[in-house]
Write a protein that binds this DNA or RNA. Structure first.
Lengths: 197, 197
DNA sequence: CGGCGTTTTGAGAGAGCTCAACATCGGTGG
DNA sequence: CCACCGATGTTGAGCTCTCTCAAAACGCCG
């Protein structure tokens, strides 16, 4: 991304940082939402629970990623944020962010651009998930993620995370990747997948 | 929604309307994106295609819904918009919208609020789709959609559309709804589902 | 070395998809 | 007014894909 992150955009609204032990919650569902965050170090994930108590991982934020940006105009958080690893986050005061937006049309536009990019990438994920066949889903996902020049995908995080994005069991993804490689449609290195046309 | 739609927000940017015959395209992927739209009448859907040529319906917009809002800061459209029924749309000039945002902090904030709401609802859809079991997926979807007071869901569009949101075959959804009703967990009327606690 | 998480492969069971037939409903035209 | 048509809704049956459960190899870190 050659675009500003939320954090960079609203540096002036920053109120400090926070360290989280592994397993610690940054916030929980229903709590008053006063700040937005970006992950500086570690890994924080957003979780909700079904009526039967099963956890749903909504998003996993690693260093550089924003957290809870969408709650800028909501009074409470809609899910839990739990540190998967020992982590540090930067905190940004919502009121100050709103003030900055009001004062700077330029930042305001950048902020809107930020959100519309996010909408697009969420739509892309939904697009992937509406493909029934697991194999086609993987192929489509790879095509979307691949850099157009070299048709190469950099895997951020583990294959398990990727399986989660793809809404399939990780074993299934391993098998499919193995098949695609056997067929010569892709080749793999650690953290990298190359698509052969 | 008791919130302003994109159209209401940027009424001054409106450049007129357009009528579409059934099957006609409002725009196609790759075309220069100069306008945003809202559907006044009829039904327009956004479609993309997989590498194998299978269509993926990304979104179905009915009267009152916006179209392509997320391309405000993109130069080209990323999918096709096709009228499913004879439809009319209102057109809004992107340049004018940007100008309005620059001039009015208030509208700018409203616009950001609009996008963050959209991010949340997309996340909610993703949340639903990350539930494996079709039955649990339906239950969770209904809980999310239900009005908290009366636990009632108003089905907009057909059950087939709902099945699409849920990323499952429509036959499966029919069966699951029939089961839930047999078990007494829900009751149904035309266009309405009531959840029994 | 020992424990933990990821990666990988195997086998079996079952959930959900596909194909198919039929009912229902609203619109359209003769 | 009725016949016809298409789309939606509904239910049945079979089969396949994918999930789940298992087990083992691998790498990493204390």
């Amino acid at each position: 991304m050659n675009h500003l992150s939320f954090g960079e955009l609203f540096e002036e609204a920053r109120t400090g940082g926070k360290s989280l032990a592994q397993g610690e919650f940054l916030f929980q569902k229903g709590a008053a939402s006063t700040h937005l965050y970006t992950v500086l170090e570690g890994c924080v994930r957003m979780v909700r629970f079904t009526s039967t108590g099963d956890p749903i991982i909504m998003h996993t934020a690693r260093s550089g990623d924003g957290l809870a940006e969408a709650s800028l105009f909501f009074d409470t958080y809609h899910c839990d944020a739990e540190a998967v690893l020992p982590s540090t986050v930067a905190c940004y005061d919502k009121k100050r962010i709103v003030a900055i937006i009001g004062a700077s049309p330029q930042k305001s536009l950048a902020c809107i651009a930020f959100f519309s990019r996010q909408v697009r990438s969420l739509r892309a994920l939904l697009e992937v998930r509406s493909i029934r066949s697991a194999r086609d889903r993987v192929l489509h996902y790879l095509m979307l993620q691949a850099a157009p020049e070299n048709m190469t995908v950099r895997i951020s995080g583990s294959i398990k995370d990727m399986a989660h994005d793809l809404a399939m069991a990780h074993e299934t993804l391993y098998r499919i990747l193995a098949n695609l490689e056997k067929e010569g449609k892709i080749s793999r290195d650690i953290g990298i997948i190359k698509i052969h046309h």
